[in-house]
Amino acid sequence: MRFLSLALIAVLLVSCNKQGVTNKPLQTEIDSVSYAIGMDVAKNVKTSFDEFDNDLFIQGFMNVTDSVDMQIDAEKAQQIIRAFFQKKQKEELAKKQEKAKANKEEGEKFLAENKDKDGVVTTESGLQYIVLKEGTGAIPTTTDRVKVHYHGTLLDGTVFDSSVDRGTPAEFGVTQVIKGWTEGLQLMKEGAKYKFFIPSNLAYGSNPRPGGKIEANSTLIFDVELLEILK
């Protein structure tokens, strides 16, 4: 509630600025802090509200300040605010669940069609792969660390991670990655390059990393080159 009050004050200040308040230069530390807080609050207001009535906000703000003509009491106001954000949270959750269901169906359809294409091998777990280049070295085990180059995309071609684009190979333990990778790496010999088609249950499932491009139940595609088994 305290944050929401700050957010609404920011709206009031914006409204006042439109009425002729001049922009002040940043001269002191508190000037800079004040301006930075305003920026941060404004960003969160834009995230929280698709539409907002500035006039009614100002009316409510002034009614409380003057203690006159309040259309609802303080307790009712808090109830309205809580109900609004609870409703918003439920709507966002429903959208995420709907998108996760669509991603799962899209992935299942893609893999069902992909398995019959030339060169595609499907393992018992559901992992699919194509051998782009065979290797001649050793095969890694679960106790090994490996150095690899990889390029990861979603089904629509969106790149979400790529050591190739960064220009620097990645190093990690065979069991320190998603299940599809752990299984796939143990099919490869040093020097090999494979393309993996990884079902969501062998990738990040319904809990992808927050804030990334990978959504819940996404099927992932990786080009993986096993450069070296590290000792």
Rank of each mutant, 00 (worst) to 15 (best):
K95I: 12
I72L: 11
K147C: 06
G180M: 04
N44S: 09
V177A: 09
K115R: 15
G167T: 02
A112M: 08
E75Q: 11
I80A: 09
Y150C: 07
D53H: 12
E51S: 10
I58Y: 13
N63R: 13
K88H: 10
E51A: 12
N63Q: 15
F61N: 03
T136R: 05
E91D: 15
E75G: 00
D73L: 04
G152K: 00
E98A: 14
D118P: 06
K117A: 06
Q86V: 04
K133Y: 02
D165L: 13
D144M: 00
V146M: 03
E134V: 03
M62D: 08
G152F: 00
I178R: 07
Q71Y: 10
D144L: 00
L132Y: 03
Q128E: 08
E124W: 00
N54E: 14
A112F: 06
Q79W: 02
L155K: 03
A83T: 09
E134Q: 09
M70H: 12
A94N: 09
T153F: 01
F52D: 03
P169A: 02
G135V: 08
K109E: 13
E108G: 01
Q89Y: 13
S125G: 04
T123N: 11
I80R: 11
L132C: 08
T122A: 13
R82E: 13
G137H: 08
Q71R: 15
D116W: 07
L127G: 09
K88F: 04
Q59I: 06
R145S: 10
K99N: 10
T141Q: 09
P140W: 07
G107P: 04
A170P: 01
R82G: 01
I80P: 00
G157Y: 10
G184S: 02
Q59P: 01
V148Q: 03
E183Q: 09
G60A: 06
K104R: 08
V121Y: 12
T122G: 09
G60K: 01
I139A: 14
K109N: 10
S125Y: 04
V146I: 14
L154P: 00
Q128A: 06
I58D: 10
N114F: 06
Q176C: 01
R166Q: 14
